[in-house]
Design a protein around this nucleic acid. Structure first.
Lengths: 116, 116
DNA sequence: CTTTTATTTAACCAAAAGGTTCGGTAACCG
DNA sequence: CGGTTACCGAACCTTTTGGTTAAATAAAAG
């Protein structure tokens, strides 16, 4: 169950170290030491960051010998995306995709090609 | 102009009071007292929340007699949307637009992992 | 000029966040 | 067995956060 709590998710994302960890994990699983390597920070500090990310449901952890590999779990980001979507008219000045969005919400499944 | 700092933006969004204020402002401008009304909280507390939102660039403030009306400024949310977009493959389980995404990221040296 | 209304500033406080060091535990390796 | 590797937990410290109350400011109203 992805702790689907916007409070925890936003708070977890508010730290640059944690966002960097997520960026690293987007390339694949990694051990704690691997994740810690780029930072001028003690290992327990990284461990704490990982616990914050895990409590927010943004990562999950496995076990491989002595290692506890971390894997990115993007599900909570869906709620973040939904949040921004709710305010789209306030930041998307082009309004290009507002119609598409409204159509999607109506269940009109016909999906036009959407370029980023 | 818009303090386009993900740290400040995510931190500002991590508080439920501040998100409720933004939700209220999505319906239109409001004074500080109007914004404070729904909360069991002192006025200075709301004032502090507004300062956090303003420093994050999420609101701007005008002047109307004794009132200092607040207006929603969604620009920082564009950066948040871009952030989630970057992780879309990890939260969009329908994978409808995975091909688009991969095409966009062409040049990435490591192939993104697809969940079982 | 005095008062009222709207909001901010200042001083304070408790709790949480982000870091440290030191010591523990669990799994593998010789 | 004993040592090494990989990580976690506990205790501690400092800064930030989120709230309070009391006093200050600014503009309007009487």
């Amino acid at each position: 169950m992805p702790a689907n709590d916007l409070d925890a998710t936003f708070a977890a994302l508010a730290d640059p170290t944690r966002r960097a960890i997520l960026a690293r994990l987007a390339h694949g699983e990694a051990s704690v030491s691997e994740l810690a390597a780029p930072f001028a920070m003690s290992l327990p500090a990284i461990s704490k960051h990982l616990r914050v990310l895990q409590r927010a449901g943004l990562i999950s952890r496995g076990r491989n010998a002595q290692q506890r590999p971390c894997r990115l779990e993007g599900a909570p980001l869906r709620a973040v995306a939904a949040f921004t979507e709710h305010y789209r008219q306030f930041w998307d000045e082009s309004f290009d995709r507002l119609d598409d969005y409204l159509r999607e919400l109506q269940g009109d499944d016909e999906k036009p090609r959407r370029k980023h």
